[in-house]
Amino acid sequence: MFICDELISSLDVSIQAQTLNLLKELKEEFNMSCLFISRNMAAVWYICERIAVLKKGGLVDLFLSEDLFSKRRHPYMQMLVEAAAEN
């Protein structure tokens, strides 16, 4: 299992992409799980199959990544997705 806490937050955009691609390849090659902690919704959507949204230490939403843009249920999740769209 990989644990990645804000893995790409301080990296250049091109290095972010390379890092995410490498992480995805490693996950698939070794059939491993990944706990990917990030505020970057695009990266979360790319890497994760399931997404859990936490706010102030509590779970506020849980869904499949394919539902990220179609089934937002919590206002905090809406804010995160809108912030990602602006970038």
Results as ranks from 00 to 15, higher is better:
76 Y>P: 00
18 Q>M: 13
28 E>R: 11
5 D>R: 02
16 Q>P: 08
32 M>N: 07
33 S>Q: 12
16 Q>E: 03
48 C>F: 03
85 A>W: 07
71 K>S: 15
28 E>S: 12
11 L>K: 06
19 T>L: 13
63 F>S: 05
86 E>L: 05
76 Y>S: 00
15 I>Q: 06
23 L>G: 02
26 L>A: 08
8 I>E: 01
44 V>Q: 04
43 A>N: 06
49 E>V: 01
82 E>A: 07
75 P>A: 03
7 L>F: 02
39 R>A: 09
2 F>C: 05
65 S>H: 09
84 A>S: 15
40 N>I: 09
10 S>L: 10
32 M>E: 11
7 L>W: 01
33 S>H: 11
82 E>V: 03
24 K>Y: 08
84 A>D: 15
87 N>D: 13
30 F>I: 08
19 T>H: 09
33 S>R: 10
4 C>N: 03
9 S>H: 01
77 M>R: 00
26 L>S: 08
16 Q>C: 07
66 E>N: 14
60 V>M: 01
51 I>P: 00
29 E>D: 15
84 A>N: 14
3 I>K: 01
8 I>C: 06
57 G>M: 12
8 I>V: 15
56 K>P: 05
72 R>Y: 09
40 N>C: 06
27 K>P: 01
4 C>G: 03
55 K>Y: 14
76 Y>I: 01
67 D>N: 13
23 L>Y: 02
13 V>L: 14
32 M>A: 10
46 Y>P: 06
2 F>W: 07
11 L>G: 09
60 V>Q: 00
51 I>D: 04
8 I>M: 09
51 I>S: 06
76 Y>R: 00
17 A>E: 10
11 L>D: 09
70 S>E: 15
75 P>S: 04
71 K>P: 07
79 M>E: 06
47 I>V: 13
62 L>R: 13
28 E>M: 09
30 F>L: 14
22 L>M: 12
67 D>F: 12
65 S>I: 06
28 E>K: 14
69 F>E: 14
76 Y>M: 03
40 N>G: 05
27 K>A: 03
82 E>G: 03
76 Y>D: 00
78 Q>A: 04
